[in-house]
Design a protein around this nucleic acid. Structure first.
Length: 743
DNA sequence: CTAATCTCAGTTTTT
DNA sequence: CTGAGATTAG
């Protein structure tokens, strides 16, 4: 691809951004303005027209997905190899840097990365060890404190605590740090801070990197926190050109430490002469865009931006009021059907909500109607319990002193090593300042016998896996640890075993990928296992990717950022819910909620629905609420109102006299017979097994009423998982169970 | 040491 | 109403 061709396809602002001279610039990229395109084209332009070498470029993103996408697009664009270019997430790049300089950074070569859950359990262990009342110092709060401190670039020594709580937390920070150091582990924030300190303390090294990276490109700059910005500055040095792309109107992670102020600071500190606004929107139709523009204009302290489109006005934004949440869900189902009939694929329809709890009713209603859906969010692959168990064994192979991993699996599967034994062990380890593993070896007595067996098991595993490939190692570990055996005995264990097998595949795939990308740090030999473990920590894995089958997309507004859909439903637009109660109290919180609403609206291409319910089941009881103030901030001429009431309201709302569960009465009154629903779809939405299908309502002689949620096996072995209203989920052999369809 | 029972809180979460 | 986490009984 010739770069001039690429440039010809850009609009003037995009082109201006792509071809900016060798200096720092801030690009205000509105929603749907071709941000990624500008970023990748800029890199292509630098390489081809400016004779910049790949090794002189660093591009940083927040998510692995964004990094991958940039990589993919670049390789499609350019014939040359991108060897030497640093593209990745903040954490990924810091990891790479720390591995390369582990000695200077005072880390073991095989340091492990703690994810948030690991960090929390490490802290709990610490509190217990120090006999600290976790009522007074809740682990979660201590965790927050430490991470916030790190994100400010602070170490315990440099903290001046004003109150006793902070004082104690600072002490705990110090103790936690010592513990991590002893165990050879780092948490997410530590990756960044260590990397930052590495450069700050080694002028020579800093100078090396500063000279190397002549161009640094930053995606989603509005989401950077104080430490990430400091890291960038450190790496860029006085001469590096930083190309920052972001949108202050889409800053929705302030609650997590993101500092939009970085944009203003950057503008000032880097004396940015070129502030380019990308205001041409290629996604949404006119009315949708107008409505979003007017909404976000209610925020103060903006850098200022107004999106425009060449597409026509398009359809009006539909504002729908329902009596109850279940009526809202019923309406949504019928609307989804209508859209699908009109030819809009299900995966082009998104249902968004403010908080995860809201998905429940929606899921239930969609399932009863037989409409396939996919929920984004929830547990990801590497976060599943069985996977974390397997990884813990692997971590112990790599580093026996990793006490977090040790504690996780020392008694899993059960080996009769209980709380008492472990207390004794930890008591023994403390004065020695040794790891649990090391202390166990020296522990005598009969209680220690089981413990010795465990130590032996780990050592045996290490011996047996020496020389094996990565995937063979994983395979050996899941067998030898007894994990597979343990789950085989469990009723719900089949899925977990499946996931463990998947882990072996993941290891195999990882080995292949690494081979394709020869980007190992130059000076040190990192073991494949260590690299794989880092990969597992840094990339939690796709959100349960259901092999691309057409399904309605359900997710929180946060999760929808960066995505786009033909039709978008924003549900639960009620005061207290969206904007959320906890955010209403102060102006900045409210503005972030408004930005959230703005992000949600700008996901839609052709059709946007905004709905709210006057009463909603919340925490087990129905609550009345007012329509969201955001609805009143939209321009009337872009809207089209609809109020739901009457028959469907009654059928969807058995509330006032509901002594039986909503679920049971609901399903009986589900308006559409599922079989008819099937014919309404252009493509059959689900497969049938012996005449049954996922989402079907059935009844069983013993267990009562339920819904089919999954299938496995075939022929005479075919089994269905049924979620029973009263007795929970069960696997039933279809040939035996005599399930009756309920209409 | 496990299993059953109770209590209690209950936004959003790229790494 | 749910689900996690702690407490208590076998």
């Amino acid at each position: 691809m010739i770069v001039s061709d690429l440039l010809a396809h850009l609009n003037p602002e995009q082109r201006a951004a792509v071809t900016l001279p060798d200096e720092s610039a801030l690009i205000l990229a509105g929603a749907g303005s071709g941000k990624t395109r500008v970023l990748t084209t800029r890199i292509a332009w630098l390489l081809q027209s400016q004779r910049i070498r790949p090794a002189e470029i660093l591009a940083v993103t927040f998510t692995n997905k964004a990094a991958r996408e940039m990589m993919t697009r670049l390789t499609a664009l350019l014939p040359i190899h991108l060897r030497g270019m640093w593209i990745g997430t903040f954490h990924g790049l810091c990891n790479r840097m720390l591995r390369a300089h582990h000695q200077t950074a005072e880390l073991p070569q095989t340091f492990q990365i703690l994810d948030s859950a690991d960090q929390l359990s490490a802290l709990k262990r610490l509190l217990k060890r120090l006999n600290i009342d976790d009522e007074k110092y809740p682990p979660k709060q201590v965790q927050r404190f430490i991470n916030q401190a790190k994100e400010q670039g602070l170490r315990p020594a440099g903290m001046d605590a004003s109150d006793p709580f902070s004082q104690k937390c600072a002490e705990l920070y110090a103790a936690y740090h010592a513990q991590c150091q002893r165990e050879g582990v780092v948490d997410f924030a530590e990756l960044l801070l260590r990397s930052y300190e590495l450069l700050a303390r080694n002028a020579e090294m800093a100078a090396h990197y500063q000279a190397r990276f002549k161009h640094m490109l930053v995606d989603e700059f509005q989401d950077t926190n104080t430490l990430q910005y400091a890291w960038l500055k450190q790496l860029a040095g006085p001469c590096g050109a930083v190309f920052a792309v972001g949108d202050d109107d889409q800053s929705i992670y302030a609650f997590r430490g993101a500092n939009v102020g970085n944009m203003r600071d950057f503008e000032r500190e880097y004396k940015v002469r070129h502030l380019i606004r990308l205001e041409q929107n290629y996604r949404s139709h006119g009315h949708i865009l107008d409505a979003a523009n007017v909404l976000i204009a209610h925020n103060t302290r903006r850098l200022g931006k107004n999106l425009r489109t060449d597409a026509g006005c398009g359809e009006c934004v539909r504002v729908v009021s329902a009596e109850t949440d279940s009526q809202e869900a019923l309406w949504l189902v019928s609307e989804v059907r209508a859209l699908n009939r009109k030819g809009i694929p299900l995966d082009q329809i998104a249902v968004l909500y403010r908080s995860n709890a809201q998905s429940r009713v929606l899921e239930h209603t969609l399932m009863s109607a037989g409409i396939p859906y996919r929920v984004t969010g929830g547990l990801r692959f590497f976060e599943r319990a069985e996977i974390k168990h397997a990884l813990a064994y692997l971590r112990l192979l790599e580093n026996p002193d990793d006490d977090t991993a040790f504690m996780r699996v020392v008694n899993f599967p059960a080996r009769s090593i209980g709380a008492r034994t472990l207390e004794v062990l930890s008591e023994a380890a403390r004065p020695l300042n040794r790891s649990l593993h090391a202390a166990a070896a020296q522990l005598g007595g009969k209680t220690a016998a089981h413990l010795q067996r465990f130590i032996q098991l780990i050592e045996e595993m290490r011996a047996r896996t020496r020389g094996l490939s990565l995937s063979e190692t994983v395979q050996h570990v899941i067998d030898a640890s007894g994990l597979v055996e343990h789950y085989r005995a469990e009723r719900e264990g089949q899925d977990r075993i499946e996931n463990l097998r998947e882990l072996v595949n993941a290891a195999l795939a990882f080995t292949k990928e690494e081979h394709a990308e020869p980007e190992a740090p130059p000076d040190d030999e990192i073991t494949p296992l260590s690299a794989f473990l880092a990969h597992a920590s840094l990339e939690a894995g796709e959100h349960q990717a259901q092999a691309g089958q057409a399904a309605v997309q359900l997710m929180t507004v946060h999760a929808a950022k960066g995505l786009e859909f033909s039709a978008v439903f924003i549900t639960g637009l009620e005061e207290g819910l969206f904007p959320h109660q906890n955010s209403i109290i102060d102006a900045s919180g409210l503005e972030e909620e408004r930005r959230l609403m703005y992000v949600a609206m700008t996901r839609a291409r052709a059709r946007l629905y905004l709905s709210f319910a006057r009463s909603r089941m919340l925490h087990g009881q129905s609550r009345h609420s007012l329509r969201s103030r955001f609805l009143d901030e939209l321009p009337e001429q872009t809207l089209q109102h609809q109020a739901l009431h009457g028959a469907s309201a009654r059928s969807g709302a058995p509330r006032p006299h509901a002594s039986h569960t909503a679920g049971a009465s609901w399903t009986q009154q589900a308006p559409a017979a599922p079989r008819r629903a099937l014919s309404e779809f252009s493509a059959p939405p689900h497969k049938t097994v012996s005449g049954f299908y996922i989402g079907q309502s059935v009844s069983h002689a013993v267990f009562g009423h339920g819904t089919i949620t999954a299938f496995e096996g075939n022929g005479a072995d075919a089994r269905a998982q049924v979620k029973f209203t009263r007795s929970g989920a069960k696997w039933l052999v279809l040939g035996m169970a005599k399930l009756q369809p309920v209409l």
